[in-house]
Amino acid sequence: MGGFLWCQGEMKRGKAKVKWSVVCLPKDEGGLGGKSLKKWNVALSGGSRIICHWGKEIRQLFVHVIGNGQSTSAWHDTFSDFGLLSNVISAREIHRAEYKDGATVADLMSRFPDVTQCDKIMWKARDGNLVDFSTKAAWESVRNHGDKVEWHNLICFSSCIPRHAFIAWLLMLEKLKTQDKMFPWDVGDGQNGPMLCSLCKTQQDSHNHLFLNVFFQGKFGKDVVV
Rank of each mutant, 00 (worst) to 15 (best):
G3S: 10
Q8G: 13
K15S: 08
K15V: 13
K19E: 12
W20P: 04
V22F: 12
G33F: 07
G34N: 11
S36C: 15
L37M: 08
L37W: 13
W40E: 05
A43H: 03
G46L: 11
R49S: 04
W54F: 05
G55P: 10
K56R: 12
I58S: 14
L61E: 03
I66C: 05
G69Q: 04
G69K: 01
Q70I: 05
T72K: 15
T72R: 15
A74W: 01
A91V: 08
R92F: 08
E93Y: 07
E93K: 07
H95L: 15
Y99N: 03
Y99R: 07
Y99L: 10
D101V: 03
G102W: 07
T104N: 07
M109E: 03
R111E: 07
F112N: 04
P113G: 13
P113F: 09
K120M: 14
G128Y: 11
L130K: 13
L130V: 09
D132E: 11
A138V: 01
W139G: 10
R143Q: 05
G146I: 10
E150L: 12
C160A: 03
I161V: 11
I167R: 04
L170V: 12
L170R: 14
M172S: 11
Q179P: 02
P184K: 07
G190A: 12
Q191V: 14
G193E: 00
K201G: 02
K201Y: 09
K201M: 06
Q204N: 07
D205N: 13
Q217I: 00
G218I: 00
F220G: 02
D223L: 05
V224Q: 02
